[in-house]
Design a protein around this nucleic acid. Structure first.
Lengths: 220, 220
DNA sequence: AAAAGTATAAAACATTTGTTTGAAAAGTCA
DNA sequence: TGACTTTTCAAACAAATGTTTTATACTTTT
């Protein structure tokens, strides 16, 4: 019994260190690094202020760990998703299918979990206004993900150059992120200023169709 | 002589209040609201800490004024740019011309001034992670701008529905912003991980061609 | 030139910040 | 049980925060 509890506490969800990570993720995503105090985090996590320096060496490292925890999982999920799609028999592969599959994987955190929005917010924040040295989000997420998708697109699209593929990826990801942000705004603004029906899946449909046409125009 | 200097000081560039606004704009864009201290601002502006509370009532209001100063100018410039284009004789108007014209206007701060990047960063920051109540950027920039462009697109593109036009605008703006961000990353990352040649004007060429194809696919 | 008004600055204000300390509590293992 | 480690917490720390005060310089007006 006590051994079981011990094992649970090592990795369990109510482990203090994990509770701090979870609380910090929400607050960092919402209010940024400088906008979140150590006491905000620990009071939200239900523990003492000193715990941040006990489990993590300080606020800076805590932020780093919060980012790292999600970065690898996000990257692997997206890359695996691309590779899985490309592993199909060739006649089942198409540009539209590839981009649709990738877009769903890209937005998966938003679609699946409720906490997914925090993860996305945190990543976008760290991408646009990096707090960490060495541009972790770029090196460990954007660059490897783009490279894999670039190769896949070139394979699927005969006649599409590498640079054209890369720019098309920027176009696609730009649309996905921006649509996400607009949706976020609309949901916080109660008034439906734009005729609202803004669902994730229909947005993906639009963006993929839009992008396929754009890519094909590059080849022609 | 003293009268001349007085007039200069009322609106001149080395007016203390203006110097504070300028310094605050750079620092807020770079480090965010919470990440910028009052002393950071005043030491950068070359004046005393108390000046923030003398000219503006406090840090909060200063931030508000920093945003307001650019918001209206940005919105008017973009909207006027659209209206100017649409005021041409009909045979000179095309979808490609409209989108190209808009894209150049959208990125104008980046293209023209060196300080333009700060303005863009500040706006993006306030759009994604608003500090101000009432979502100023959305209400006073995105919404009016989108509405005007939406009307223009529907006029230029027979058969394009209003909602399709709006989604196309999101696609276009998403690409413009994301390209800007990627470029910003590449310029800060010394290593040229992506084969670099990433110039604003060629990026706009790609994005406009890409978007025109996307829009035409919606109509067909 | 004297008076009135405006602008600047140094110092002090009370809070809040991240981090450290030292001791008490809980858990582990002989 | 009793020694040992790990975890938790209240309290204290110096440094930094936004803001206010008070006095001094500068400008304008009379």
């Amino acid at each position: 019994m006590s051994q079981l509890k011990s094992q649970e506490n090592k990795k369990g969800a109510d482990d203090t260190a994990t509770r701090i990570l979870d609380a910090a993720e929400v607050l960092f995503a919402e209010n940024g690094f400088a906008g979140t105090s150590a006491r905000d985090i620990t009071s939200s996590a239900g523990c003492n202020v000193a715990s941040i320096n006990y489990y993590f060496t300080g606020k800076d490292n805590l932020y780093k760990q919060v980012c790292k925890r999600r970065l690898n999982a996000l990257r692997d999920f997206r890359i695996n998703s691309i590779n899985d799609y490309m592993a199909q028999s060739p006649e089942d592969i198409s540009l539209e299918g590839l981009l649709y599959n990738f877009s769903r994987a890209f937005l998966a955190p938003l679609i699946e979990e409720a906490s997914g929005r925090n993860v996305m917010k945190l990543m976008v924040r760290e991408m646009l206004f990096p707090q960490l040295p060495a541009n972790m989000v770029f090196e460990e997420l954007i660059l490897p993900m783009s490279t894999v998708l670039q190769d896949a697109m070139v394979k699927v699209c005969p006649g599409l150059g590498e640079r054209q593929a890369l720019w098309s990826i920027f176009s696609l990801v730009g649309q996905l992120l921006h649509t996400m942000h607009i949706q976020d705004m609309l949901s916080s603004n109660s008034g439906e200023k734009f005729s609202n029906p803004f669902e994730v899946s229909s947005a993906v449909d639009h963006i993929v169709a839009f992008t396929v046409a754009g890519v094909e125009a590059l080849i022609a």
